[in-house]
């Protein structure tokens, strides 16, 4: 489904600020895989996401989606296959447009945009039923401007917009990190429901170790631009935070430097 082959990317090469963001990343996701990615700040998680989505291009290496080489395909073309939810709840929606207009815009993701009305009767009914799956009552507020919604509601809407057209790959970039614990739990549950229902191939970056353990069938740990741990199946089910930290120490021979990761 998704293959990342020998990807490397260095920022500011040849200057004192040189940073090897990714080094020989090798990753293969099968259809229906739900992979959680953890690692401290600067480990390269977001860079990897950006390379897969096309926001960044690698120095070397190859990205393929459905056997198709997309390494140099522009971001907007690649989003035919990819749904994304960003960390910032403001980032995934358009605040001055209404809920139904936002959904209509997202609905055109894998279609050609025409001069037909974005919202019509059939679509409105479809949007309503889709919104109902969020259990937030948003289906009653189709004509409310999205800028009036709370962060949690907006993030739930972003998740719906990214997934209801069933992309080949779903990228979640710390999409619960900016929310309070109860809203974060709500979005986590929604994510679980959506992915289970649709069987989307998902890659989720998180700073929250518990979340990384609870969700998905596979866990990847990154550090200094490399994948240092890749656990799946039964082994992943048996994993705990202690074991994970212990594992990190064993591989790297140092304490995990990121308090946020431990506190999470």
């Amino acid at each position: 489904m998704l293959e990342v082959n020998h990807i490397s990317l260095t920022f500011n090469e040849g200057t004192p600020d040189e940073k090897k963001a990714l080094q020989h990343i090798q990753l293969k996701l099968n259809k229906g895989d739900f992979v959680t990615v953890i690692g401290s700040n600067g480990a390269g998680k977001s860079t990897l996401m950006n390379i897969i989505s096309g926001a960044l291009f690698p120095d070397v290496g190859k990205v393929t989606i459905n056997e198709k080489n997309v390494t140099l395909l522009q971001e907007f073309k690649r989003s035919n296959y990819i749904g994304r939810v960003f960390q910032d709840p403001m980032a995934g929606t358009s605040p001055t447009m209404t809920i139904e207009e936002n959904l209509a815009m997202a609905y055109s993701r894998n279609k050609k945009r025409t001069l037909k009305l974005g919202v019509n009767k059939n679509r409105r009914a479809f949007f309503k039923s889709a919104l109902a799956t969020l259990h937030l009552g948003l289906e009653q507020r189709l004509n409310a401007k999205v800028g009036l919604l709370s962060g949690g509601e907006r993030q739930a809407l972003s998740l719906l917009m990214a997934t209801f057209t069933e992309p080949d790959i779903l990228l979640l970039d710390e999409h619960t990190a900016a929310l309070d614990p109860s809203r974060a739990a709500l979005i986590t549950n929604l994510t679980k429901e959506v992915v289970e229902k649709t069987g989307l191939t998902t890659l989720m970056v998180t700073h929250n170790m518990q979340q990384a353990l609870d969700l998905g069938n596979r866990l990847i740990m990154m550090d200094k631009g490399q994948i240092i741990l890749d656990i799946s199946g039964a082994e992943k089910q048996a994993l705990t935070i202690e074991k994970l930290l212990h594992e990190f120490q064993r591989i790297r021979g140092e304490q995990m430097g990121d308090d946020r990761a431990i506190l999470g």
């Binding site: 073309k77 995934g92 945009r113």
Partner: peptide, 24 residues
């Protein structure tokens, strides 16, 4: 209010987002 028009409005509102919904 058309599909193209919605994308145009979104471009002025949140460019990063509308690119992630495959609009040029």
């Amino acid at each position: 209010k058309t599909e193209m028009g919605l994308a145009l409005r979104a471009t002025g509102d949140n460019e990063k987002m509308i690119r992630s919904f495959s609009a040029n």
